[in-house]
Design a protein around this nucleic acid. Structure first.
Lengths: 330, 330
DNA sequence: TCACCCTTTGACAACGATGTCACGATCACG
DNA sequence: CGTGATCGTGACATCGTTGTCAAAGGGTGA
């Protein structure tokens, strides 16, 4: 900037005026400065500018998601981006991989960078560690999982309801032996889906067979192996409820490879782009990712814009989409 | 920081020392300062720190991708993140949506934020506008598409080869009437795939029927509509080459809804997570996204670490994966 | 005991930018 | 032609940090 000022024969402040398109600079000076800027390849330094301006806005928000390469996370990211785009806000995106340590480290890093807000799909169980930042005015919106130990905005879905829909649907199609495939019980959503499953089974007066309730499955491969074991047992299930999209994928693979694709009923939790063209088309509990993302983005930016109303907890209802795999009879 | 210093009864510089874990501070002072930090909820300001340190490193890199919610882009993002994670570097991710204007605006924004490097899957045709930044030392690595007008690192795949593989494969299975579905010809990869398709057809002495060469398809819905039109014609194709994953998805949907899923051969370009369990399993030209991502990340960080060797242009070879849909005979 | 060294700490300027305020020049007006 | 208002510009301090250098205090060896 100093060099630009020298080359244009003006003061630093005047360069600043031109760069910020402030009014009250003569046309002649503007062109001289702009020429100097172009000639020297000068680039305005936003960090320094923000520092001086003091208000602190960096026009950056953080998005801490489960895994940016997972379709649910990346759709949320995209929704947030669409909203951010209008405001010239950029997004720092990271994957937590369900690792609490990583969450804490990343939050720390983003706070040090003074992001204007945080979208969090937490990997931790308790969130008191965020209390200070929250109090000091950092907007944080939880998505997919609720805050615990602090009170802040959240957008989640009713996971128990989703599980209930799945179970009742399978029961209505004549199933009694329903297997449950779930993720790590340390993950809030996975736990709630599991509890919802058992509650629904009890509500329908069906026994819960521990050997058919498999949790801590992390990948399609885990699910595939689990399904192979299930179907090799003496009394295999007639239906499977896969409580996460990647587990449904693994289940489909297993059924295909065992040649039982049309025989065992399957309901997945979470829709995904191709669920309608797999074989058989997959019946799923759908959460409307677009609606979740839009709600989250709106909340976050409202807070950034100064909304100080009490935290809001939005719970969206998932719905069951019949496509075929869930309507197979025993 | 001033308040922390006052509360701990030390100077600013000493607080700085403690915060940066510099040696040569007595244990007593360290604990006093740390207590003050905790009590006041003080957060180190990275922007100010970077400003003063002058070296300019912000520990941020930008990733400008086609669409972060698309599986190819998000896998690349994830690969980059895995490498960045080790170095405590965060990623600013954005979608360009094939809009040149957006690319320029985002690059501008990231340069103003002084990112340490840029991963770019460009939406623009010419990239001279980056020359200044490149010259001033900003590492830029192109992915999926080559730089034009500047010389900088790139990691791409041999798209023409991919198209050739597809055509030869279909021809070997007895097809002569092969339809081509492609994206906007303004997109470099789409253009190259199209050219590769026509070159391969000529090499096999097959006529290129303009009515069966459809480009500018942007979404699965576009592809679906195109396939419906194709199959409604007097002389429908016996095979389809869908030169992008979302177009293959639309094609599969169309074939399903028309009840021709097992009759028309189909080869897609780009693999995707569920291609093996759709019906029939999809034969694709696969690009190894993991390898691309790893290569890109390595290049970018090598440059950031000061590698000044001449720009390298890595071209990876795609391969054909037989799964069923491409082996259907006319 | 004295000169010298090492350890620990602080004062100060500077990183790149901008808000504040003051200054000189131009202008309109009576 | 004097006066006050308006316009364009610049000097300076400051945002939150840290590199540099110097000083205070204690320890060591001759």
């Amino acid at each position: 900037m100093r060099e630009v000022a020298a080359l244009a024969g003006v003061s630093l402040k005047t360069v600043s005026r031109v760069v910020n398109r402030e009014s009250g600079v003569s046309a002649d000076v503007v062109t001289r400065v702009e020429r100097a800027v172009a000639q020297l390849g000068y680039r305005h330094n936003l960090a320094a500018s923000n520092l001086r301006r003091g208000h602190g806005k960096t026009a950056m928000v953080g998005a801490l998601l489960q895994d940016v390469s997972n379709s649910f996370s990346s759709s949320l990211l995209r929704s947030l981006e669409d909203e951010a785009r209008d405001r010239d806000v950029v997004i720092v995106a990271s994957s937590l991989d369900e690792e609490p340590e990583r969450e804490r480290a990343l939050v720390e890093g983003l706070v040090r960078r003074r992001v204007d807000g945080l979208l969090l799909m937490p990997a931790t169980d308790r969130h008191d560690y965020l209390a200070d930042d929250l109090r000091s005015g950092l907007p944080i919106v939880f998505v997919d999982r609720s805050p615990n130990g602090i009170d802040t905005d959240s957008v989640t879905i009713d996971n128990a309801r989703g599980s209930r829909l799945a179970v009742y649907h399978l029961v209505a199609h004549g199933h009694r032996r329903i297997a449950f495939l779930g993720d790590l019980p340390t993950i809030q959503t996975a736990r709630t889906r599991h509890e919802g499953f058992e509650a629904a089974m009890r509500a329908r007066h069906l026994p819960i067979d521990p050997s058919m309730t498999i949790t801590s499955l992390r990948s399609p491969e885990d699910a595939e192996a689990a399904v192979r074991r299930l179907l090799a047992s003496d009394e295999p299930p007639t239906a499977i409820f896969a409580a996460r999209n990647s587990l449904a994928v693994g289940t489909i693979r297993a059924l295909h490879r065992l040649g039982k694709a049309g025989e065992i009923a399957l309901v997945g939790f979470d829709d995904f782009p191709l669920a309608d063209i797999v074989d058989p088309p997959l019946t799923v509990i759908r959460q409307n990712v677009g609606a979740i993302g839009a709600e989250v983005a709106q909340r976050l930016f409202a807070r950034i814009d100064g909304d100080t109303s009490p935290p809001r907890h939005v719970v969206l209802a998932p719905e069951l989409v019949e496509r075929g795999s869930g309507e197979i009879r025993p």
